[in-house]
Design a protein around this nucleic acid. Structure first.
Lengths: 123, 123, 123, 123
DNA sequence: GTGGTCTAGACCACC
DNA sequence: GTGGTCTAGACCACA
């Protein structure tokens, strides 16, 4: 359901948060749907439950999830708006990486070419 | 001379290493030139000298810098080749960020648009 | 510096958050001051460092603390305002306990008497 | 009949226990009376029946309730004494909240004022 | 079974 | 030394 890159400098819990927001942005998850259980997601991502729990806790604080004790976690009604805000973050993070790539000597052509390559690999 | 993003999850010393390699890739720094002094660079980046020292130490191990007693570090003769190798890293890191942006719900169009925007801002 | 009640149903990290806000409200800690170190506070409270870390992390998100990697945590400039907001929470939590005591059959007289007693013990 | 605060850190079943003891302390429920049915109370409190069942089970152990096969629970003869003992708990919990409010920076005046306000709202 | 809290202890990045 | 992240595993409250 989600993909995590353990070797990335981006914290796993941030990747999980971004991933869930992405699923909502893309419509694969809708307000009112059940979010994956903390334990189940942790198992499928091969990650410690505490790490997923931290992501869920922060998402609850942000109003993206409604977590109930003893119950399932539901995608909040406002999740779409929250996720839309998250898109700005993703965009900024991406732009930042692009800028850093430039500083490393990659030309804009290189960058565009890389994007194009990815587009072919994962359409 | 270099730009550092303290709020990025990418370690500062890695950003410094990438930045110096970039300067060589782009020809703004050539083998035989003096690298900026650790203290001076640390001051201009508003970063702890130890952090710059770590970057320089690792660059020396990689054969990118020749650090001499007395404090002056010179860009090594093989620096261009080392920097060229670093380009692969930069490209990979960038591709990774693009992939993550996709997972967050950004469309390829969004990404291309962001690249285009950056291109206008920092040609 | 702070007092924690491990037998209370209120989570320890919340007590720590409230305690720090209280120190600022009472002027014993001011914006710009160094907050106690996570490890040091954990040791003095005989609590796990992770528990204190969680409190500090949330306080940073709330804008009450400025935490820097490798450095000390500073009381933020806006801490007084944030702490003032926290007073409302404390008041609400207290009022809630008073209400619950009433439901348990305590009369208002009992409650006032208890407050008066505490006032004598800890002026 | 009872009031429950789901957002309180105090366990719901403890609130239910305290609430029933309170009804007896205040004389609204007397030894020999039928306690509300588990299902009915759960429905009116919008709480899981298991939660109410747990409260009743513990109250039976404490000798406050006589639960009989067939489902009817009766207020025990010794309930008044048990409830009186519970007052001490309520008092202690309340005193604890007051102490914590103090640590959060509330002055005794604030606290007394809050008590006075509550007295006006719920005489 | 679920989420929430806490402990114990590890490694990392940084000062 | 500091804060930040993560793991492993415990107990609790609840459905």
């Amino acid at each position: 359901m989600l993909e995590i890159d353990l070797s990335s400098p981006v914290p796993v819990y941030d990747q999980i948060k971004a991933g869930l927001k992405g699923l909502v942005s893309k419509g694969q998850l809708r307000p009112g749907d059940e979010a994956p259980s903390i334990r189940g997601l942790a198992a499928s991502l091969k990650v410690n439950p505490n790490t997923v729990a931290r992501a869920y806790r922060e998402l609850s604080i942000e109003g993206f999830l409604n977590s109930q004790r003893g119950g399932v976690s539901l995608i909040a009604d406002q999740a779409v708006q929250v996720a839309a805000g998250g898109l700005g973050d993703a965009r900024a993070a991406f732009a930042d990486a692009a800028r850093r790539a430039r500083r490393s000597g990659l030309s804009w052509d290189d960058i565009q070419r890389t994007v194009a390559t990815l587009l072919v690999e994962e359409p």
